[in-house]
Nucleic acid binder design. Structure first.
Length: 462
RNA sequence: GUCCCCAUCGUCUAGAGGCCCAGGACACUACCCUUUCACGGUAGGUACCGGGGUUCGAAUCCCCGUGGGGACGCCA
């Protein structure tokens, strides 16, 4: 049974890189009919917040990435971590260290100055025949893992291939702080083992943690999971995403009018491929997804392509669902959605032209507000040349059958009677009715409105 | 600085030695459609980081260089 997990730390919202990691871990479990586990890594009491937990849950929910187990919270597993630390202390694979943070800083500075890799020097590490310093009175030690000193740690990464790191490069990491709370690399190991994780699918930035985690797992006599490290996602400008640079919450895409299926489809294609296929539903994605077609190199986010996908999905989404999504956006703007014209009818006509839900709301809004077309637009299209045809059209409006084809015929007739071309009447009608120069077929737009509203909006011509 | 990773059109990518003087998609350009603008359709331009090997043959394998990224915490 394949078991994957997504293990974010609740120090902020769910951003686009985290969302892709979650998507891949989720899809891998789905593909193999396995289980997908959500685990909140909140051992950093200072930086974790309940708001961030909620933001992550909201993001996962919006994307529809449902978990089969969890969410588990590391803060609720403290007794378990303490238990394992006791075991390790007893077995000699961990030991107390009384070095102060200030001493450590000093050591690291010296090492850096000497061109060395900063690392703990093992002064409190017990060795056969070695005399340890006397522990300072009244000081609580941290607990360090006794990392092997020679040999190499190697694993076959499912994305990057074989990676080997010499144990000489690794130092004895802290697994429990002076206050007794366990640290990340240790909790991950205990949790992944306890939760039976078979495939650790996570960001590239964890590659360097992997050998440490493997060493701890081995000290514990645990079976190793398989690892797949996903490369990072860069911003639109090729720069690294960070809190102050473009790392937007997935919920911001909701705010900006993107459909979750478009975001998902876009993310799926960022770093993974299935031949030349570009468009696929989530069931299709889960069926196709595998770890063999993930690129090991970093990918740059491209908003234009996301926009294209969003427009694609918008065009194919049922009108009723779009109306449900657009209505609250209009209401949030203080626009009252009247019964006529019906929002569904408007969306039906306009959904082909919008790239996102907010644009759709922009286009629909003009049907419900008191309209004041811009003076320069009126001046541009309401010329002395067009006026007679327009008046002709208005005069015949009261008796025309209220449907696009009849209205279209009337426009053609009015235009013909005054020896003009179609746009000479279509353009002023567009501007007077919607305030815009670009609309769908003008007869269809006229037909959307109640007859009285059209007469009212065209009255400005006289 | 040390260690690790990465490298095909502007961008996302196909490519697992001959099918590739490199294919698809977004973006771009032109044309068609047209009641404006979109949509849609058709056509087009643009890429294997550099140098050495290996091989009858390399985008694909190896080495070096260059460039980019990540990690070096009592953060995750």
């Amino acid at each position: 049974m394949i078991r994957t997990r997504f293990a974010p730390s609740p120090t902020g919202f769910l951003h686009i890189g985290g969302a892709r990691t979650a998507l891949f871990a989720w899809a891998y479990a789905r593909h193999h009919a396995g289980r997908f586990i959500l685990r909140i890594e909140d051992t950093d009491l200072v930086r974790s917040t309940p708001e961030a937990v909620q933001a992550i849950l909201d993001g996962m929910h919006w994307l529809g990435l449902t978990h089969d187990e969890g969410p588990f919270y590391q803060t609720q597993r403290m007794s378990r971590y303490r238990e394992v630390i006791e075991e390790m202390l007893l077995a000699g694979s961990a030991y107390p260290c009384y070095m102060t943070p200030a001493e450590l800083d000093h050591l690291r500075e010296e090492q850096r100055a000497a061109g060395l890799k900063p690392r703990y020097d093992g002064r409190w590490r017990p060795e056969p025949g070695k005399t340890l310093p006397t522990p300072p009175a009244g000081m609580r030690p941290v607990i360090r893992f006794r990392n092997p000193t020679d040999g190499v740690v190697a694993w076959d990464d499912l994305v990057k291939g074989r990676i080997e790191i010499a144990n000489e490069e690794l130092d004895d990491l802290v697994i429990a702080r002076a206050d007794g709370t366990p640290t990340y690399n240790f909790c991950v190991v205990v949790d992944d083992r306890d939760m039976g994780i078979t495939h650790v699918i996570r960001g590239d930035d964890h590659v360097n943690n992997t050998p440490r985690q493997i060493n701890i797992l081995q000290a514990l006599g645990a079976q190793l999971p398989l690892y797949a490290h996903l490369s990072m996602i860069l911003g639109d400008d090729g720069q690294k995403l960070s809190k102050r640079h473009g790392a937007v919450s997935v919920m911001q895409y909701d705010d900006e009018g993107y459909l979750p299926e478009a975001v998902l489809n876009y993310l799926a294609r960022l770093g993974w491929s299935h031949g030349d296929d570009e468009i696929f539903s989530m069931p299709q994605f889960c069926e196709w997804f595998d770890l063999d077609h993930i690129t090991p190199s970093a990918a740059q986010f491209n908003t234009e392509k996301l926009n294209w996908l969003n427009a694609y999905y918008l065009k194919r989404t049922e009108t009723a669902r779009l109306a449900d999504l657009v209505r609250p956006r209009l209401q949030a703007r203080g626009v009252t959605v009247a019964a006529a014209p019906s929002l569904a009818a408007i969306i039906d006509l306009y959904k082909e032209r919008a790239a996102n839900l907010n644009e759709l709301a922009d286009l629909a809004e003009v049907f419900y507000i008191e309209l004041h077309p811009k003076a320069e637009l009126l001046a541009k299209h309401l010329t002395p040349e067009t006026l007679p045809a327009l008046e002709d059209f208005i005069d015949h409006l009261p008796e025309v059958a209220w449907e696009a084809s009849a209205i279209g015929a009337l426009i053609k007739a009015s235009v013909a009677r005054h020896g003009l071309k179609m746009p000479k009447l279509a353009m002023p009608l567009r501007v007077m009715l919607t305030g815009l120069e670009q609309t769908p077929s003008v007869d269809a737009v006229v037909a959307l409105f109640p007859r009285e509203t059209v007469l009212k909006r065209l009255a400005v011509a006289r």
